[in-house]
Amino acid sequence: MAETTASSKNVKFIITRQDSPESKSYTEDFEVPYRPGMNVISALMEIQRNPNNAQGQTTAPVCWEANCLEEVCGACSMVINGKPRQACAALVDKLEQPIKIEPMKTFPVVRDLVIDRTRMFNALKKVKAWIPIDGTYDLGPGPRMPEKRRQWAYELSKCMTCGVCLEACPNVNEKTDFIGPAALSQVRLFNAHPTGEMNKEDRLETLMEDGGIEGCGNSQNCVRSCPKGIPLTTSIAELNKDTTKHLFKRWLGV
């Protein structure tokens, strides 16, 4: 009985669409039957099943990406009612209608809501966000990591490269080559690891180049937007301290 009353309600969506990477974007309205507990992904699935817009015309189904559906993979990041976030964790009951959905345009748009986050993975490669453990012989076990530090570093390791912090940052755009908050925080994570620490200077030096840590303008939108609650601005300030120290050490030849 409850379900019949619920299904008579419709949820309104205004979706920004784009047919190809080069073409212009446009908006299309959709109405999706309401179901209790639905989120933006389930609404997009409904549109995929019945690709009719609000005017009743059949249209190409909206493209989007999703994977884990529990806010740990970062694939379904999009701008929902003006704020970048994961669509799988965006409950329709908690959103103002009509729900406006746009792709995160800081990244190249592939189609509709699908974006290309390659720059983030390139950034991780650039800052060497890994721990080199391979040698030509057995290097033996590394130093132990204190449990307290491990628990603290675990918070930084929650980063899922979702791109929300880059979308929110006013200094990540086509006029700058700023690497963005996510990769900066990963430098702090890998520099905190007892084995990773052995390559600390290499990582710091990658941040002391064009588009490195200098790109941060302290708007601190990143820390307010991060879905994982990573202390991004603390990471950046800590790395400001580390790079400043490294700068003087290098000059003075210590």
Partner: peptide
């Protein structure tokens, strides 16, 4: 040059630090 590079977004992110970023 720094001011020219910023894509100010206080409309969507009206947090005090971001407002100060734009005001700066």
């Amino acid at each position: 040059y720094i001011a020219y590079q910023a894509k100010n977004n206080v409309g969507h992110y009206n947090y005090s630090r971001n407002i100060r970023f734009t005001l700066q």
